[in-house]
Design a protein around this nucleic acid. Structure first.
Length: 427
DNA sequence: TCTGGGGTCCTAGGACCC
DNA sequence: TCTGGGGTCCTAGGACCC
């Protein structure tokens, strides 16, 4: 059996942890740049606030109902996420925990005897809440897809289910699936949902589960669709992922707080993103061989916003895989030069690192001038300073000092758990 | 003039997730 | 005025090879 454990309105719960006065009040958290609403508490959902709705369009409604609004505070969420995951690893055999996202983990329950799932899931839920203050919901079922379904149902009826739903018995599963909208399945997005409904008259999970595999292969993304059908039948075929796997691609991209028109500013921004991506790369002990830099323009007046993040990009394969910030920046800058077009209004830029390999297997270059050992120490020192003090306490000049383009974050809460100077105070 | 079949590798793009 | 960021996996199709 598989379980998925999922934090309830995670970002909102994190904010509330340090603002107990907001318990059972509506709370929302905004995306970077304070652009969209990306998390809503139950109370905010009840007010009819749309997920990923643009903030400025809903501002009136938010004010009218005195909703507490926060800019996203990823340092805080990341730290609390780690605590939740550590709790799971303490209660479970740690190899059976797959961290799936910042607020979710799949669990392998093979060590639990049939008939004890409910009890175990409740125990998990209570332990996480007690140790971290974060409330979670648990779904248990024979496959990941069905566990996700159970989890969603548990969340929908928190009172009735006490945030846990176990789907074990065949009749129970059938009854639930007959009533479950196919569009809400994990793995069925907007496009497939439309196609299923309009072309094939499939509306429920139950109907979908009875389609032939060959049909799924043809119409539902090939092997992905076949797996979906099997998972719905309770045959687990989406494996648990190895937690030690490294990322295959690392990126850092941002909308600008204000549009950028000059190459100097674009250079600064890209150098900053390179630094950030390189940090992530070093954190997983890897180097990258290729780099892609892109910039998104906002057309001329009246023209539709071209939201293809790769619409204008340049790509370089480096002499050898590296994770040194200065080296990566020196590869990135010529890309910016060749990308930049005077007179354009840039609204976003980013960098993507690819062909990522563990440091241990990087081939040294014959023509390397600097001693890589020394540079490694330098990078570690920089990372440590930036981690323990304040972000970007040490940075490269190329990444700029003024940073006019930096994103807006007007309502960010304190980094209560990761920065001494922002420690939570009780008076 | 006639002009195969099988394989691999790469990239772009589409779909999905949170 | 103002619409996020960071990923994954899969397929189709082109280029190239023998």
């Amino acid at each position: 059996m598989k379980a998925i454990i999922d934090c309830n309105s995670f970002y909102c719960s994190c904010e509330r942890l340090f603002r107990p006065d907001l318990t059972s009040k509506p709370v929302v958290v905004l995306s970077n740049n304070d652009g969209c609403i990306i998390a809503r508490s139950d109370e905010a959902k009840a007010l009819g606030l749309a997920m990923t709705g643009p903030y400025f369009q809903q501002r009136d409604l938010l004010q009218k109902h005195q909703v507490a609004v926060f800019s996203s505070n990823y340092n805080l969420y990341g730290d609390l996420s780690m605590r939740v995951m550590e709790t799971l690893r303490a209660v479970m055999p740690s190899s059976s925990v797959e961290v799936y996202s910042v607020d979710e983990a799949f669990l392998d329950l093979d060590h639990i005897a049939s008939g004890h799932y409910q009890e175990f899931a409740q125990h998990l839920r209570q332990t996480v809440e007690m140790w971290t203050g974060i409330r979670v919901s648990v779904g248990v079922a024979p496959s990941k897809v069905l566990a996700k379904m159970a989890n969603r149902l548990a969340k929908k009826e928190k009172k009735k289910t006490n945030c846990v739903m176990v789907l074990e018995d065949g009749d129970h599963i059938e009854a639930v699936m007959k009533d479950y909208d196919v569009a809400e399945l994990w793995g069925i997005g907007r496009k497939y949902a439309e196609k299923l409904r309009n072309h094939f008259g499939i509306n429920t999970a139950w109907q979908l589960s009875h389609m032939p595999e060959e049909w799924a292969r043809k119409h539902l993304g090939g092997i992905v669709g076949v797996r979906m059908i099997r998972e719905l039948k309770g045959i687990s075929c989406i494996p648990m992922k190895d937690p030690l796997e490294n990322k295959k691609m690392i990126s850092s991209t941002r909308m600008f707080g204000k549009p950028v028109f000059t190459i100097e500013e674009l250079r600064e921004a890209v150098a900053t993103y390179v630094s950030r991506a390189a940090e992530k790369l070093r954190r997983q002990g890897c180097s990258a061989k290729v780099m892609d830099v892109f910039a998104v323009t906002n057309g001329k007046d009246g023209e539709k916003y071209a939201y293809d993040p790769r619409s204008d990009h340049r790509y370089v394969e480096m002499n050898h895989a590296t994770s040194f910030t200065n080296e990566l920046i020196s590869y990135a800058m010529p890309l910016v030069e060749s990308l930049f077009r005077p007179g354009h209004k840039y609204v976003k830029a980013g960098v993507i690192l690819g062909e990522i390999v563990p440091d241990a297997s990087v081939q040294g270059s014959l023509f390397d001038q600097q001693d890589p050992g020394r540079r490694k120490e330098l990078m570690e020192a920089v990372d440590n300073l930036n981690f323990s003090m304040r972000n970007d306490v040490v940075k490269y000049v190329a990444s700029g000092l003024k940073r006019n383009w930096k994103m807006r974050q007007e309502m960010r809460s304190g980094k209560y758990t990761t920065r001494w100077e922002e420690l939570f105070e009780i008076k």
